[in-house]
């Protein structure tokens, strides 16, 4: 426990405090919202965004970004659907989904690290390409009827998400490779000269991100029983928001998985509460945007006090 919690700094504590305060506030306003049953019923999307946000944290820590996650989820889901249509086997389709995810990640990783194109540019292009292929291959039609064999996967999502978060949190703190990601983010050239495998690490991170997209596509298919080429639309924004809200610096070199977990939780709870209690979906972007703005400003102010220029 202690090992896992290393890296839980004052920013994370602040976030947790904010989360607890919000939850208490939400609970006072609408006690039913806090009941375990309701929280569990509403938690489906949280695990998926967590699964994507954990590898995204590492990518951002190295100073890169992946805007193609949403498109990758869509593409994997469509491939899953197409494969299921032709084979009828959930297992094969799942494997295909993971494989396609790995493929997308590999393309991203190679373009970013070998040809050295800015990750924003690469993933902007692969995002358009991914959504485009998903739309083209599926003709915009949904796929459904995957049958009961897939159902347990949805229940396991929470385990996957927690497993990924805890393992990554420990790994980034304890292993040399995990620590090297921060060095890469702080100064890539220096990291390279110090003998860190910069390129390999970056490719690996993008591949893992793609793999997770494949996994999330399968989990989504299990949870909803239907997939379509638009399911990943806007997902990249949710994921990046969670990561940034969690205190990871987009300049690289700073950030923690715990922060991201809290960030994802905050986004999730605020979103759910806005439509649960006020029943006004149009408030959601306003609240999330405001939350993000306030938290980064607050983070900067704390930093400013700590290290006066």
């Amino acid at each position: 426990m202690r090992r896992a919690l290393k890296g839980f700094g004052s920013y994370e504590a602040g976030l947790l405090g904010l989360l607890v305060l919000l939850m208490i506030g939400f609970g006072l306003a609408d006690p039913a919202f806090l009941s375990l049953g309701a929280q569990l019923d509403l938690s489906g999307p949280l695990w998926e965004s967590l699964l994507l946000a954990v590898p995204m944290t590492l990518i951002v820590v190295t100073g890169a970004i992946d805007l193609s996650v949403g498109a990758a989820v869509s593409l994997c889901a469509v491939c899953f659907g197409l494969m299921f249509q032709s084979t009828g086997s959930v297992l094969t389709s799942g494997m295909v989904s993971l494989g396609v995810g790995v493929l997308v990640g590999t393309v991203n990783g190679l373009l970013v690290s070998l040809i050295n194109i800015h990750s924003l540019v690469v993933t902007l292009a692969t995002m358009a390409l991914g959504f485009g292929i998903a739309e083209g291959a599926s003709r915009g039609q949904p796929f459904s009827g995957f049958g009961p064999t897939l159902n347990p996967v949805a229940k396991w999502a929470v385990v996957f998400a927690f497993g990924a978060a805890v393992w990554t949190a420990v790994w980034t703190r304890r292993s040399v490779t995990g620590q090297s990601l921060y060095v890469i983010g702080l100064n890539e050239t220096a990291a390279e000269y110090s003998g860190y495998p910069v390129k390999r690490s970056k490719v690996a991170l993008f591949v893992v991100q793609g793999l997770m997209a494949g996994l999330v596509a399968v989990i989504y298919a299990a949870r909803r029983g239907s997939v379509k080429s638009d399911i990943g639309q806007g997902l990249e924004l949710d994921v990046v928001t969670a990561v940034v809200l969690g205190g990871t610096s987009v300049f690289g070199g700073r950030g923690s998985v715990w922060g991201t977990v809290l960030g994802a939780l905050l986004v999730h709870e605020v979103r759910q509460f806005a439509s649960w209690h006020w029943e006004r979906n149009e408030l959601i972007p306003l609240l999330i945007g405001g939350l993000l703005l306030i938290s980064v400003t607050a983070g900067r102010v704390i930093d400013g006090i700590k290290t006066p220029q």
Binding site: L5, A13, L16, I24, G27, A32, S35
Partner: peptide
């Protein structure tokens, strides 16, 4: 921060397990 974390976690558990009134 560790103490804060623990306290918060306890608060959260308390908040989540407080009698659910969803069914009413």
């Amino acid at each position: 921060s560790r103490a804060l974390l623990l306290a918060s976690l306890m608060l959260l558990t308390w908040a989540c397990t407080s009698p659910p009134s969803a069914d009413k």
